Amino acid sequence: MAKNVLITGGTGFIGKYLTDVLIANGYTVSILSRSERKNTSKTFYYKWNVDLGYIEEEAILKADYIVHLAGEGIVEKRWSARRKKAILDSRVRPIELIASVLKKHNKPLDAFVSASAIGIYGAITNDTICNETSPAANDFLGHTCQEWEKAVDIISALGIRTAKIRTGIVLGRNEGFLEKIQPSFKLGLGSVLGTGKQYLPWIHIEDLCKIYLKTIQDQQTSGAYNAAVTDDTTNQSFSKTFARLLGYSIWLPKVPVFLLKIILGEMSLAILEGQRVSSEKIEKTGFQFEFTDLKTALSSCLS
């Protein structure tokens, strides 16, 4: 029988792509959802409500693998104290709920793979290239990712192989990061944010899904992996490349730092700062990126 992968956040941008990749590679997929959805021959939906501590346990009992993608968007709303709590809880509490069911039934898994983020290295801009042994930052993004990954360690303590995918900006057609910036850029109104010197580690959605597939299939993979191309892309170089692909050169002035801080508050740090990361560890597993050139990656998202 085909192995089953249970996905949290399976109806989101990454989850939808990953579902197709898994099915194409012979897996069946189960997806946890807050609402009723219709099953297909290879995709099954189960209800859960983390706030109420409820989950259809059959989803866990049926799974051979679990992929945890659920989580509130980091830059969707200003970071009030309440919003920060929601961002953290939406990442940690689902893992705790899943762990409780695994413990209750002494349920084995072939692997538990969780999203994480390069935000663990903090909202900082410097020349350091961060790898998986680099220290976590003492800011909101760093703290959130640390707690997120600590929750994954609860699963690891059950004797289950775990992997943590520290993801950069994900590029995909009409979704994710590009969905947010495309409208203004297509109108010829693209601009550089702040100094433009902040690094912007990125990964194409196809490569990201292949990394998840790699960590599912390769029993030697465990621990944290950076999922972003190792290059020197900055906000400025990204913006200029994207504008050129759309047929123009950026003519608007840079959006001032002080203005972004007024509009976005503390959340502006997620936009105004950024470090480079190394992809050496995942590549040493034999993984090869298909998209390593920004222009080629962006073109594939526009064609």
Rank of each mutant, 00 (worst) to 15 (best):
E206W: 04
R173F: 14
K150I: 04
Y17A: 02
L187H: 13
L102N: 08
V192L: 13
N235G: 15
T167Y: 04
S80E: 13
I14V: 15
Q275A: 02
V5Q: 06
Q220W: 03
G194H: 10
G223P: 02
D153W: 03
F44S: 05
I60K: 13
A297M: 13
S184N: 15
E179S: 12
T133C: 04
A24T: 03
L200R: 12
Y212V: 04
I98S: 07
L260W: 05
K62Y: 07
S222H: 11
R78Q: 13
F140N: 06
E206M: 09
E266C: 02
D218K: 14
D232C: 04
T292L: 01
P135F: 11
T144W: 04
Y121G: 09
F177Q: 14
L246C: 06
V67H: 08
I87C: 03
V192R: 15
D139P: 01
L193N: 15
G194N: 10
V170E: 12
K284C: 05
Y225N: 09
N174H: 14
Y46N: 00
K38R: 12
E57L: 01
L193V: 12
K42L: 08
E36F: 00
I211N: 11
Y121R: 11
K186W: 01
D231H: 12
I211H: 06
G194E: 11
R91N: 09
Y212M: 00
F242T: 07
G73F: 01
T11H: 00
C209R: 12
L109M: 14
G12E: 05
K16C: 07
